[in-house]
Simulated assay, not measured.
Amino acid sequence: MLQHQINDFSHAQRSSRYLAAKKAYDRYCANPQSTSAKAKFASQQGASEVGQITRGVNTQSSVPSEIAIRPKIAAPVELRNSSIPPTQVAPQPVNAFELMLSSLIPMGLWFGFALLLLAAFKAVLVFKAGSIGEWRVNSKLKELTKGTNLTLYENLLLYTDSGEFTEVDHLLVGPFGVFVIESKNYSGWIFGSEKQANWTQRTFSSKSQFMNPLRQNYKHCLAVKSFLGIKEGIESLVVFHDKATFKTEMPKNVIMLSAMNDYINGFTEPRFSKAQLDEFNVLLSMREEGTTAEDYKTHIQQVKARRAG
């Protein structure tokens, strides 16, 4: 042990620690005494001095030292056998607004899709209702033509003075007049007069306005006059379904479907000869046969453009 002390302090041979260790080594290790008592004394004395040297090292810790103390290297730890629990990732805070928005977006898309579907369904219903109304009027008019010299034309496209198409719902040609008929399949209460630009329909759940059908049919009458080349004998007639009720005085030339045939049969004064009727029917048949699907498509586009304008 003294030899190790000498080696540890050999770099400072003048220090008290080196000198004390060297002196104890020379005295008790290099020249040991023979008697057991002396050996015991020497070992006790050496141990005492070594203790003093050790205490001296502790008390003189402020003395500069050039001894480099190397840190101990920890033994590797086997992670797979470690009892230390794995590090847990802290949960990220949840943004309530983003969560709500992410749930509302699909709902909004479904709601928008439902609105589009409802609008399309409503448009189909309106179109279907109009078609049913026209079919009912046509059925009544066909009953009127049986066994007579009356001729019926349906959904006839004619040109106006502006060069656009206009569609005549029903055109009845006979010796007592050429009847230009506009059918309306409305229900509920109807409010309107001959001079009003728009009439009103009111039901239990809604209220809406539509163009004065007399003005609408006036445009049709002008197209028929121009096409046939006549100025007299044109009769404008607007027919409402019986499920509608007029809450104002019913204008002239506006009747209910149930009274239509009787109204037409009330015209008994001849206006056109058989030759004129034959000429009218040739012109109208040629126009009817010459109308194409593209013409109807163009007419629909023109109607949409006018409504948008």
Rank of each mutant, 00 (worst) to 15 (best):
D8F: 05
H11D: 04
Q13C: 04
S15D: 02
D26M: 00
Y28I: 02
P32M: 00
S36P: 07
K38L: 10
A39H: 07
A42Y: 11
A42D: 10
S43H: 03
A47T: 09
E49W: 10
V50I: 07
G51A: 12
R55Q: 06
G56F: 00
I67A: 06
R70F: 06
K72T: 08
A74V: 08
V77C: 02
L79Y: 06
S82C: 01
S82F: 03
A90Y: 11
N95W: 02
S103K: 15
L109G: 14
F111A: 15
G112L: 14
L116H: 10
L117Y: 11
F121P: 05
K122G: 12
V124I: 13
F127V: 10
E134G: 11
W135F: 13
R136T: 05
N138K: 15
K142E: 15
K142T: 08
T145K: 02
T148F: 08
N149A: 14
N149G: 09
L150D: 11
L152N: 04
L156Q: 05
L156Y: 01
L157D: 06
D161I: 09
S162D: 15
F165S: 14
T166M: 13
V173D: 02
K184W: 06
G192F: 05
Q196G: 07
A197K: 15
T203Y: 03
F204W: 11
S205H: 11
S206Q: 11
Q209A: 10
F210M: 08
N212Y: 01
P213V: 02
Q216T: 01
A223L: 13
K225L: 10
F227N: 05
F227R: 04
K231S: 13
S236V: 05
L237F: 02
V239K: 09
F240W: 02
H241M: 14
K243F: 09
A244E: 09
E249N: 08
M250G: 02
N253Y: 10
V254C: 00
V254W: 00
V254P: 00
M256I: 06
F267Q: 11
E269P: 08
F272N: 07
S273R: 07
K274V: 09
Q276Y: 10
L277W: 00
F280H: 09
M286H: 15
E288M: 13
E288G: 07
E289M: 12
G290Q: 10
T291I: 04
E294N: 15
E294P: 03
E294D: 12
A305C: 13
R306T: 04
R306D: 06
A308D: 13
G309W: 15
G309Q: 15
